[in-house]
Design a protein around this nucleic acid. Structure first.
Length: 854
RNA sequence: GCCCGCUUGAUGGAAUUGGUAGACAUACGGGACUUAAAAUCCCGAGGCCGCAAGGCCGUGCCGGUUCGAGUCCGGCAGCGGGCACCA
């Protein structure tokens, strides 16, 4: 019996599927559609195991839904703009475009080896003018609807390289290449008005019932709706006021200071004639723009010397600090601090020796003795030390405080969102040019739709840092579309998140002359199942949700939510290896012993084995998918990806696991091959009488069919895999003794082959052919189970005494509670455990358990 | 710092959603086949005590609810994801 030759067979079927056009689809209103989409890859060079996992999962869903009769759209494309292409240009002197297109060619070839059921005719790349031209048009139309505007915003500035840095390029407050301490710098930039949809984006989460709860929760928290109050403090000795936002107006009597952001206008004013304040602000600006850097930095403040008047206690004065933890982007860029009931305020107060006055009394505390130590009290309680608020609960006190502030004209109730508008300007070359022309007379003007696209010029060099578009005179200088005078193009490009915010819509009509064809999107959208990494839980998914709403406003789509179902898969991890000097080693440099120790293949020096971590180039714990596929075949790689670990969890890639998957594919090959000669011809009707063992086998087969379908519906691929192992074990251990047995064996083998179809498509197709079928398995409908074989006649019940299992009993499935009770109490082990005591209570759960309480 | 997860044998995990913990697989041990090896097939196995029957313990840690908790509640620890210019 020959071995299964995966390489040859996979090539053969991939070619035939492509020639037959199995996976090319078009709109067909007579059929129910199903749109499966995996997050499209960034063309970084080669595919990695994370891609293999993502696309395997998506392909199983696509093939399964196809077998279930849906008209399945399953496209692929490239998220092709981005920073790494420019880095490659600077490091290796290659043009970002050729680097990107080369990578796409390589990765397309690798994906094809996986045997994915993709409609390659719909392939798109976001860096192609055929894509970004439409994106520019959408930008212009959003501008006309008031969804785009311009404002000042901070960026990370590298003072040595004279370039803007991404947060990722700022390491410990320093530029990644120059090593120079970075500065915050203000630039005029374009923003999408995502906050116009804050309430909608929040509210609609409730209806996304096929999204993971944790993603919805993260988005809710990100949008961060909070009800509170805006308070206008009178600045002592001045005519103007300091406006703060708070969620705790009930603690106003406990306020001991106000704090403003370093880039608050008042701070700038103070700094004008206070060198120390200016120095402090400069220090704050070195922190970078990321929230993490700001929040983890040591809390620091600078006393401006200004004070404000307490709105409820006229004689009380609160000092105004500039503080490094107050964000200009949130609320009003200013807060009041109540140290007793906010941890950050408490830390600040202790540091600068400010009063800590408790004003909320915990339920069981004593007003005379309650004091705040190192921990602020943030729970519910009763207001005290708070004048007219005394005795009120937190919620009532908030209302009363707001009412009173409003009555005296010092404030009002406000709803505040944490969500900020989306800044999309990037001072970089390799992105979608922002289609705007700046005219000295007319101001910024959108490029007329007829003049689109604004193409990225090819003739650029990366021999100096910064954006080459700025130095490209013939591209940059143009005329104003309004007045015809000399003008300059906007040299910024769009955030790459814009590209990925509507590609799912473009896939519906990838060659349309407009951004999208309305009939096509009406048919295909929403995406029924979107699949990708959890790391995109907030930004990408929120931006895409916003963008879809914007598309609706400008008339391209009729729906608000792009993704009806979302699945977030876990990462692919691998052990890490280091040599004696702590240098990372590739898995192929290491030889492992049975005891788990490892040594260097070259020379045998000892190697330290570290725990499994996300595969990454920097740690070298990577396994090349192409090498795995050429050794074992795509089906083996796919099967291993689906085995063992639930898809939402991180999985560990191991050699042993791949080999196990490979052995199983060989076993299936033998299982069919060895039985082939004894099987009846296909479509032979079943003999009249089947023996008991044959019926037992059919029960296993049909239970597996039913359970596998459920598992695939629920993304429980690892369970489906385990069930298929069980089925293969049952079929392998079955000896057909008569015609009925041989008939049932054929039935079982055919169903087994059909069940593995979505997971190991090439092997399944080949075995289907071996079993005598000359149609494509990919065109076969999903099998259904014979319901009469799904139920058992007897059940095994556990018998517990006081919750401890003492025996098991077998009963007919329709046995009554009385019978179960009698049989259970009759068990010798149960009587022994009862130790002669009477049963006080007997709980019977049908077909499950009997618990005797003594 | 803030938000969100995860934690079950040597290992990945399963557990009908509060009802027999450890399915299935990997690694391991024993056996069969073979001149031998590989491959394949069969058997074993949570830990401790015991010849055995059986007993006790056991789902990261501490506590609670319940006839019954891996599953629910409260607290803690460890690990991971995100934090708006990485994609």
């Amino acid at each position: 019996m020959s071995r299964y030759n995966a390489k040859e067979t996979e090539e053969k079927w991939q070619k035939r599927w492509a020639e037959a056009g199995c996976f090319a689809v078009k709109e067909d209103p007579s059929r129910e559609k199903y749109y499966v989409l995996e997050m499209f890859p960034y063309p970084s060079g080669k595919i990695h195991m994370g891609h293999v996992r993502n696309y395997t999962i998506g392909d199983v869903v696509a093939r399964y839904k196809r077998a279930k009769g849906f008209n399945v759209l399953h496209p692929m494309g490239w998220d092709a703009f981005g920073l790494p292409a420019e880095n490659a240009a600077m490091e290796r002197g290659v043009h970002p475009a050729s680097w990107t297109y080369d990578n796409i060619a390589t990765m397309r070839g690798q994906l094809k080896l996986m045997g994915l059921s993709l409609d390659w005719d719909r392939e798109i790349a976001t860096c192609h003018p055929g894509y970004y031209a439409h994106q520019q048009r959408l930008f212009v139309e959003m501008m006309e609807k008031g969804l785009v505007y311009r404002k000042e915003s901070s960026v990370n500035w590298d003072p040595v390289d004279h370039t803007v840095l991404a947060n990722e390029q700022v390491i410990d407050g320093k530029g990644w290449r120059s090593g120079a301490p970075i500065e915050r710098r203000k630039l005029s930039q374009w923003f999408f008005r995502i906050t116009a949809f804050s309430d909608e984006l929040l509210g609609a989460l409730d209806d996304l019932d096929r999204w993971p709860e944790k993603v919805r929760l993260m988005q809710r928290n990100w949008i961060g709706r909070s009800e509170g109050a805006t308070i206008h403090f009178k600045l002592v000795g001045r005519d103007d006021r300091l406006t703060v936002f708070t969620t705790r107006p009930d603690t106003l009597y406990g306020a001991s200071f106000c704090a403003i952001a370093a880039n608050h206008p008042l701070a700038a004013e103070v700094a004008q004639n206070n060198a120390k304040a200016a120095a402090f602000i400069a220090e704050c600006n070195r922190l970078g723009t990321s929230e993490e850097a700001i929040e983890t930095a040591e809390k620091q403040g600078f006393d401006t010397g200004l004070t404000v008047q307490h709105p409820f206690v006229a004689e009380r004065r609160l000092p105004v600090y500039i503080a490094n933890f107050v964000l200009m982007e949130y609320g009003t860029g200013a807060i009041f601090g109540c140290p007793a009931h906010d941890q950050r305020d408490l830390d600040f107060a202790r540091k600068y020796d400010l009063p800590v006055l408790p004003v909320v009394l915990p339920p069981d505390a004593d007003a005379a003795s309650f004091a705040v130590g190192d921990e602020a009290y943030t729970g519910d309680g009763t207001a005290f030390n708070s004048g007219f608020l005394d005795g009120l609960g937190v919620a009532e006190a908030k209302r009363a405080a707001i009412d009173s502030l409003a009555a005296q004209g010092d404030g009002e109730g406000t709803i505040q969102y944490r969500l900020r508008d989306w800044g999309i300007s990037r001072q970089r070359y390799w992105g979608c040019p922002i289609p705007v022309i700046h005219c000295g007379k007319c101001g910024p003007q959108p490029v007329p739709v007829a003049d689109l696209p604004v193409r990225l010029p090819d003739d650029v060099t990366f021999d100096r840092p910064g954006n080459p578009l700025v130095h490209h005179a013939s591209w940059k200088h143009t005329t104003c579309p309004k007045c015809g005078g000399t003008a300059e193009r906007d040299t910024d490009t769009m955030d790459t998140f814009v590209d990925s915010s509507w590609y799912f819509a473009r896939f519906c009509s990838p060659r349309a002359q407009s951004p999208m064809d309305r009939a096509a999107v009406d048919y295909w959208l929403p995406v029924d199942q979107y699949i990708g990494g959890i790391e995109h839980a907030i930004l990408h998914l929120l931006y895409a949700r916003f963008f879809t709403r914007a598309l609706k406003e400008i008339g391209y789509v009729g729906l608000g939510e792009p993704f009806a179902g979302l699945f977030t898969q876990g990462m692919v991890c691998h052990e890490t290896y280091r040599d004696a000097d702590g240098k990372w080693l590739f898995p192929e440099q290491v030889e492992k012993s049975a005891e788990g120790t490892a040594r260097l293949l070259d020379g045998g020096a000892p190697v330290t084995v570290g725990r499994a971590e996300k595969m990454s180039k920097s740690r070298r714990n990577v396994v090349d998918p192409e090498a795995i596929i050429s050794t074992y075949g795509a089906d083996t790689a796919r099967w291993f990806m689906l085995s063992d670990s639930p898809p939402e969890r991180d999985m560990e890639w191991t050699d042993a696991g791949v080999e196990g998957a490979w052995r199983f594919s060989q076993r299936l090959w033998r299982l069919v091959g060895e039985n082939l000669a004894s099987l009846p011809a296909k479509d032979t009707p079943p003999p009249a009488d089947l023996s008991d063992v044959t019926v037992e086998l059919r029960r296993v087969v049909h239970k597996t069919v039913a359970a596998c379908g459920d598992d695939l519906d629920q993304f429980r691929f690892n369970r489906a895999v385990a069930r298929i192992y069980e089925l293969a074990n049952a079929l392998g251990g079955f000896t057909a003794e008569d015609a009925g047995g041989r008939w049932a064996l054929r039935e079982g083998l055919e169903l087994l082959v059909r069940l593995i179809g979505p997971m190991m498509p090439h092997l399944a197709e080949e075995l289907w052919r071996q079993l005598g079928h000359d149609d494509y398995l990919v065109d076969e409908p999903w099998p259904s189970a014979d319901d009469s074989l799904l139920s058992d006649e007897r059940a095994t019940l556990a018998v517990q005494v006081n919750g401890k299992k003492r025996a098991t009993i077998s009963l007919p499935v329709d046995a009554g509670d009385e019978e179960a009770r009698a049989v259970a109490l009759g068990e010798p082990a149960v009587q022994r455990a009862m130790d002669g005591k009477p049963a006080r209570k007997v709980i019977v759960v049908k077909n499950r358990i009997v618990n005797v309480v003594v």
